[in-house]
Design a protein around this nucleic acid. Structure first.
Length: 331
DNA sequence: CTTCTCACA
DNA sequence: TGTGAGGA
């Protein structure tokens, strides 16, 4: 196939095709005599995925790594690609939701005051700046690399993962799941928490932002469903789960993102769905005295957030820093 | 019809 | 992240 045919078929310009070649996304062979590009099935497939991913807002560079990952993996590239695409689209969607919200706020303010106070303009600008930052958190911690050693780490790292197993057991106890329920584990990692619930007869789904972690998880718990995603972009439709759990993951969010995460959890939960979270948190006494590199969750703020959203909470302290919080909606 | 490069947003 | 022009 020559370039015009391909361009017509995929509804893109010939220029764009050459541009993608220039960026190293495709490498069609050239005809010997006249140097014309010839596109085979493989090239067309790659181009198709490029335009699809481009449409969902993925950068050229990200597409490049995604494509090479697919090639290296081989196992089920199509499914991986579709999930990747969906998770990107969900991220976009969440972003749009936030933009709509801030816009609504502006409209409200204008309606009441007939002008935007300087403070508001500042916070709005701050908000959209944070909005952009969110996108950069994808592999900030290099969990893809950590996947293979993760399970030893949680047993050995006595500082960060102290009482790891106890915390997971407490979650299992607190959610008191019923066989046949559907549960979601956010930041599931290699599935240590979800696996325990799965053993109780719950249909567990696990979300993580690291593909390597999910692969390890699937090896350990083949019955589990795993998807790429994160707290702010859960790859599920509304009202799918009876409960959401999470362990040692929420602290990766900034305090600004936590309310957004709650909204997102509520979205995928059924009307009376409950939430149970274990993580390192700080109580009042520790807040000023502890200045660590990790942005710790403030226990009181988290409780207040749940309560202002109509939840009754129950908390358990496992050790100095580790808490398990259960939130059940009122009525 | 294709190639490439230069400039431009 | 692409596009348009223009020569070969």
């Amino acid at each position: 196939m020559k370039i015009k045919e391909v361009a017509d078929k995929l509804k893109i310009t010939q220029r764009a095709i050459r541009f993608y070649e220039d960026k190293g996304l495709i490498a069609p062979s050239k005809q010997d005599d006249n140097q014309y590009r010839i596109f085979d099935e493989e090239d067309i497939w790659r181009l198709q995925t490029i335009v699809a991913l481009r449409e969902s807002g993925m950068s050229i560079n990200d597409i490049k790594t995604a494509l090479s990952d697919i090639k290296a993996n081989g196992s089920s590239p199509l499914r991986y690609l579709l999930e990747l695409q969906r998770s990107v689209m969900f991220s976009k969607w969440i972003e749009m939701k936030q933009i709509i919200e801030t816009t609504d706020q502006m409209i409200e303010t204008l309606k009441n005051d007939h002008e935007l106070p300087l403070d508001d303009i500042y916070t709005l600008a701050e908000g959209s700046r944070r909005l952009r930052e969110q996108r950069e958190w994808e592999d900030k911690w290099g969990f893809d690399q950590l996947a293979s050693v993760h399970d030893q780490l949680v047993q050995e790292d006595s500082r960060k993962y102290k009482n790891y197993d106890e915390a997971l057991e407490h979650i299992v106890k607190l959610v008191s799941s019923i066989a046949g329920e559907k549960g979601l584990d956010i930041g599931t990692g290699t599935g240590n928490l979800a696996g325990r619930l799965s053993a109780k007869g719950v249909m567990m789904a696990g979300v993580d932002q690291s593909r390597e972690m999910l692969l390890a998880c699937q090896r350990k718990f083949p019955e589990m469903e795993t998807k790429l995603g994160n707290f702010l972009a859960l790859p599920y439709l509304d009202g799918k789960f009876d409960f959401v759990v999470s362990s040692f993951a929420l602290h990766h969010l900034t305090s600004y993102q936590i309310p957004l995460a709650l909204q997102e959890m509520q979205r995928v939960l059924k009307p009376h769905g409950r939430i149970c979270i274990a993580d390192l948190m700080m109580n009042e006494n520790q807040i000023s005295s502890n200045e660590n590199d990790e942005d710790y969750i403030h226990l009181s703020k988290l409780i207040a957030l749940f309560e202002s959203n109509g939840y009754i909470t129950k908390q358990m302290r496992i050790n100095e820093m580790l808490y398990v919080v259960l939130a059940v909606p009122i009525r």
